[in-house]
Design a protein around this nucleic acid. Structure first.
Lengths: 218, 218
DNA sequence: GCCGGAATTAAACGAACGTATAATACACTC
DNA sequence: GAGTGTATTATACGTTCGTTTAATTCCGGC
């Protein structure tokens, strides 16, 4: 009666979905080894055996979480931000791309930044599932933009590659250090306005640097 | 007899030291949770109880490893590199500091970069032992240099702080991504010559950026 | 020689882990 | 409405974990 009614309400999402939802939060909070299958099933309100039943084991569930979080973040970014304007001048494109990456790395809705940071610092077997595709498009676009700004052919020269790393590192920094930054008293904010401001600085910093390097490369 | 003789030879280093030596390698390779006390004592050639006897538990041994690795890296850097020349002009000081930091972050002899990366991304209770002191001197010096380059008073303005992060992030990037970078086919080298070259790029990039920002800030 | 304390060893404990198995509940076709 | 395949539950299994306890060895001063 009321019992089956309640069950039906909660079962609008299946056990597998509830497991994914619980697992993504717990894996992001405590990492793979720090999260037990008992933690997950308790949070999901399912049985101890459910992970093996639906996913074939803890490792497979983790890989699935990684894949979905990656896909979700990519879709979010696609939807929320204007598509890169390939017609604009390179400087504007760089500003857009940097803002896009910073939103990706600092997004508090998404758990991908945290999961990706853990995987990049300490890659697990599941890294193969997302590693190659991780920020690949952003990096390729960045290389293209930087080459244009340097006045070099798009074929990657050493200088282009180094500048790409310099730009990328300024953005990724916040992904890796999020845990300690938010412990500090003067923690930098991560609301939309703050990210915009941050993007502006990284853009100016990088544009000035690249412009200077271009001048001296002649 | 020969047995006691052999024992004396190996016991020139005590059980505690052998535990530290084994633990630092294993913790760096597999992380705290990925390393069991049985792994450590086997590698050290001591008994299962030795960790509790000498250090009072796995967590305490880990904290001790962190402290020692930090102290060792600091002493190494102190000894190997010329002390920062506070008389030199700011640009030269920045070049020296960036090279110093890159050697710190990319040093393959030291296990601190790896251990620090793991702790920064996923701080454990032991983080308190080294976190506050981690690269504190480098950061303070960096802030001083950047302020001078920007022509601003040393009291930290927002611009100075952001530029410090921009420089720091370019160096720390390699600490966080070491695991995945060395998996890639075109992995950047990390020998002395390569680090010097890298330091040169980061320095030029940052100096041009700061010079440009100073011009536009007027 | 021996004795007291530190160092080292051996063995076991209880808890937590991921997984497997067997039993039960459910939904839907015929 | 019985039957069938899927979903869910309860429980047990075998391992591994960090730690504890007790026994043994080693070593320097008396």
């Amino acid at each position: 009666m009321s019992k089956t009614a309640a069950r039906n309400v909660t079962d609008i999402v299946s056990g597998a979905d509830r497991l994914i939802d619980a697992a993504r939060v717990l894996f992001a909070a405590r990492g793979y080894e720090g999260t037990s299958v008992r933690d997950i099933v308790q949070q999901a309100g399912t049985n101890l055996n459910s992970i093996n039943y639906y996913f074939g084991g803890k490792q497979c569930l983790y890989t699935e979480v990684l894949k979905r979080e990656h896909a979700r973040a990519a879709a979010d970014a696609e939807r929320r931000l204007a598509p890169p304007d390939t017609r604009a001048d390179a400087a504007k494109r760089l500003r857009q791309l940097i803002e896009r990456m910073l939103f990706l790395f600092l997004d508090r809705e998404s758990l991908l930044p945290r999961l990706a940071a853990l995987e990049i610092v300490n890659p697990s077997p599941a890294f193969e599932a997302i590693g190659p595709a991780l920020h690949a498009r952003e990096q390729a676009e960045l290389a293209d933009i930087v080459a244009k700004l340097l006045g070099q052919p798009s074929g990657e020269s050493a200088l282009v590659r180094q500048c790409v790393r310099s730009v990328l590192s300024q953005c990724a920094y916040y992904m890796f250090t999020a845990s300690v930054l938010q412990r500090m008293p003067d923690a930098p904010r991560s609301d939309t306005a703050a990210i915009r401001k941050l993007a502006q600085h990284v853009s100016e910093f990088s544009l000035r640097a690249i412009a200077g390097l271009r001048r001296s490369a002649r």
